[in-house]
């Protein structure tokens, strides 16, 4: 299993891998927002957390469609599915590798983008924390979409369409936890706890659903 984790990490940093593209996409999306809403620093500071979250959500969907498709194209998926290790554990490990390669860099990049958004230290810290807790959930939900669309020739866009509605709760609680941290009367912990609960919930549901989708899409 460590072998699979390391291989997937290696693949994502090698030429053509998605690790760098995700962060770049994140930066570009966030950087484009001020051109739309104007350079008013107060306004940007207010909407900053929401924009970072939406940017991270879109960026983490970016490479997801290749999660199983690449394995299927070169025949590795067959061999992986034949092993005695439960498929859902394999899926979980692949998700972990994918998140480490694409989700974690987003979390690391978020403070810098927070500066561009003129957010204060508290807001940046809260955004980073909620992204750290919330982006794994997006990857785990995305794995289901990736598994469903694995056999489709143009699965890429479809995965985003399938996954985005499912990821809405993550966005809601992620953003509301950040605003709770900034604005005093609202308590930070309840939405943050719910966010973590969602992540844990999808850590169970995601691999089970993805594994069964993979089994059924075998031909």
């Amino acid at each position: 299993m460590t072998a699979l984790f390391l291989r997937d990490l290696k693949l994502s940093v090698r030429a053509g891998g998605g690790a760098m593209i995700g962060v770049l996409f994140f930066m570009t999306v966030v950087a484009v927002i001020p051109f739309g809403v104007g350079p008013d620093l107060n306004l940007l500071a207010r909407i900053g957390p929401a924009i970072l979250w939406i940017g991270a959500l879109l960026a983490s969907l970016l490479g997801l469609d290749r999660l199983f498709q690449a394995e299927r194209e070169d025949g590795s998926l067959d061999l992986i599915m034949m092993q005695e290790t439960p498929l859902l554990l394999t899926v979980l490990v692949k998700c972990a590798a994918h998140w480490t390669a694409t989700g974690l860099p987003l979390v690391v990049a978020s403070p810098f983008l927070g500066l561009f958004m003129n957010m204060d230290e508290r807001a940046i810290g809260a955004t980073m924390l909620t992204l750290l807790a919330g982006t794994p959930a997006i990857t785990l939900i995305g794995a289901v979409g990736a598994a469903v669309a694995v056999a489709l020739p143009r699965g890429g866009l479809l995965v985003s369409i399938l996954v985005l509605p499912l990821a809405i709760p993550v966005l809601i609680f992620g953003v509301s936890a950040v605003y709770a941290a900034i604005e005093d009367p609202a308590p930070f912990l309840p939405p943050f706890m719910i966010l973590m609960a969602i992540t844990l919930f999808f850590a169970v549901i995601g691999p089970v659903a993805a594994a069964s989708a993979l089994r059924h899409s075998a031909d």
Binding site: M1, L6, D74, G75, D78, L79
Partner: peptide
């Protein structure tokens, strides 16, 4: 199933990794 090697039409090796890395991966994974 679990006692079999399956060599399909496709080679199940990654173009981006070296042959050595590919083989080590399968050795450890299988």
């Amino acid at each position: 199933r679990e006692l079999s090697h399956y060599l399909g039409h496709r080679n199940a090796m990654k173009r981006e990794l070296t042959v050595e890395e590919n083989l080590i991966f399968w050795q450890r994974f299988l």
